[in-house]
Nucleic acid binder design. Structure first.
Length: 255
DNA sequence: TGATGATCATTA
DNA sequence: TAATGATCATCA
């Protein structure tokens, strides 16, 4: 399949498809009939998932009039944005679940040729200053992970982006064991953040949940707590799920 | 080769 | 600036 997708031959022949990702927003605002409204129930969401399971990214892009990038180096979030559009996610880049009405977060899960996750999964930003008042129960991370629609996607580098296929999406909530691991990791990491020990946190901490840099580049700064309790500037961080954890989720679902 | 640290694009 | 969507690029 080629990359030469044409915009939909609708009332919108010159849609500003300037960049692959930018085209998502533009087309979504034009009431494109091929982009569904937000699902009103998990059942409706899963029905849409049944329709797209096994389809290629090229097919989904074609149906939505979205251009396929040649590679993902300059379009790292493209797959996620495409699937969100196809399924009717409405939260855009807000700090909300992707499907606001039903409180479901969506994550694509890139799989290698063996069906194992190729990457860790971003969860949310680490609250570097205001985490002191947080508990796991009320935390942003827990809210995000409470209900997740996992969307497996083929992701071998050899495979052209348009030819990569969706797997079978499935809904997940942490079971008591998983929740306990997540809570323990979160509490350990947030204690360090709150005690001004962020500087000694590396991605090696945490069994399932880890903290890594999350920013446009290393020069981006955000306020945090220093060793003496003072206010310092540091690189913004994010919580990520290790791929060993998401592999276990896959296995519990499919094995 | 897997994991860590770094980075890319977009939006509010 | 800080949040969203993530993958890239390098090194142990």
């Amino acid at each position: 399949m080629s990359n030469n997708y044409k915009p939909l031959a609708s009332d919108n022949p010159t849609a500003a498809v300037s960049t692959p990702v930018g085209s998502l927003r533009i087309i979504r605002t034009m009431s494109n009939p091929d982009l569904p409204p937000p699902p009103v129930s998990e059942a409706e969401l899963m029905e849409r998932c049944r329709v797209v399971a096994g389809r290629s990214l090229g097919q989904l892009a074609m149906q939505t009039g979205i251009q396929v990038p040649h590679d993902l180096r300059r379009a790292k979030g493209w797959v996620g944005q495409l699937v969100e559009a196809v399924l009717g996610a409405d939260a855009a880049s807000l700090a909300e679940p992707d499907f606001r009405a039903i409180g479901v977060e969506m994550k694509t899960l890139p799989l290698d040729t063996d069906g194992r996750p190729r990457e860790s999964t971003y969860v949310c930003t680490v609250p570097l200053e205001q985490g002191i008042s947080d508990s796991w129960t009320t935390s942003w991370a827990r809210r995000k992970l409470a209900r997740v629609l996992w969307v497996p996607v083929e992701a071998d580098r050899e495979l052209p982006v348009a030819e990569r296929r969706l797997g079978t999406p499935f809904l997940w909530s942490p079971d008591p064991h998983q929740e306990e691991i997540l809570r323990t990791d979160w509490e350990e990491l947030m204690e360090m953040v709150c005690l001004g020990q962020l500087g000694s946190i590396t991605a090696r901490f945490g069994r399932a949940l880890q903290i890594r840099p999350k920013a446009a580049n290393a020069r981006i700064m955000a306020a945090a707590i220093g060793p003496e309790g003072e206010r310092i500037l540091t690189n913004p961080r994010g919580f990520y799920l290790r791929s060993s954890f998401t592999l276990a989720i896959l296995q519990q679902q499919f094995d």
